[in-house]
């Protein structure tokens, strides 16, 4: 399976993402600059964290208009897995690939710590190797991770089981403690916590690795004959 790590000016978790895929997951991966106009050779798209365009105007606001984003939309429409982490999640929200928006954390502080998450839905291509209700530890590092959407959108998210991860301690004030959601089709996941920073016990937790392994498992099952 071949992954693309999209790099925007100001991305800073791209190297972690690359490392997680290449060294811990053992799959092919390439960096792709934000002005790329073809992602057809990739099977999975990863939008890393950071501060694209310095968070000018709003987090992700300028990056979502990058050339590569129309290709990311095509990949999403084609059913390929698209994962946005932290700033990557914010970019997915700005682009409309996922519903809602981010507000500043409720206490206005940048929070950087290992966070405990609960797996709410383990029937997605990103979470199938977790068990439902499982508690996992994945680091967070953000100032604007307070998820917000209107009442109608929230009802839709709940009815379609689109909430994949929640915080057990809602430190940033997110609606319904939301830490990660998928789109209606289930192939675009946005999450504030960083699974790519939790891929080895040496780093404090390897709980994030199963997320990447879930993606590969689903891909192998649907693409490789006699797997």
């Amino acid at each position: 399976m071949k992954f693309a790590v999209i790099v925007f000016p100001g991305s800073n978790c791209d190297v972690d993402m690359f490392h997680a895929v290449q060294d811990e997951l053992g799959e092919e991966v390439e960096y792709v600059w934000h002005d790329a106009d073809d992602l057809s050779e990739f099977d999975g798209i990863l939008l890393p964290g950071g501060f694209s365009y310095g968070d000018y105007l709003r987090s992700g606001a300028i990056a979502h208009l990058s050339k590569v984003m129309s290709e990311v939309k095509k990949a999403a429409q084609a059913g390929k897995p698209v994962l946005g982490v932290c700033n990557g999640f914010q970019i997915l929200l700005e682009s409309g690939l996922l519903p809602g928006a981010m507000l500043r954390n409720k206490d206005l502080k940048f929070v950087c710590k290992p966070a405990q998450l609960k797996v709410e839905n383990n029937e997605t291509m990103f979470s199938s190797l977790y068990s439902k209700g499982e508690k996992v530890t994945i680091p967070v590092a953000h100032g604007e991770g307070n998820y917000y959407c209107d009442e109608a959108t929230l009802q839709q998210l709940q009815a379609n089981q689109q909430i994949v991860f929640t915080y057990t301690d809602n430190f940033n004030g997110s609606l319904e403690s939301i830490a990660g959601i998928v789109n209606e089709q289930g192939n675009v996941l946005g999450m504030m916590p960083h699974p790519e920073r939790a891929v080895d016990e040496l780093l404090g937790s390897a709980d994030g690795l199963k997320l990447f392994q879930s993606i590969v498992k689903q891909w192998r099952e649907s693409h490789v004959v006699n797997a």
């Binding site: 105007l57 709003r58 606001a61 208009l65 929200l93 700005e94 928006a101 917000y148 959407c149 209107d150």
Partner: peptide, 9 residues
């Protein structure tokens, strides 16, 4: 609508 504001919030 496209860039300067985010109509969601």
């Amino acid at each position: 609508e496209k860039l300067l504001s985010n109509p969601v919030v």
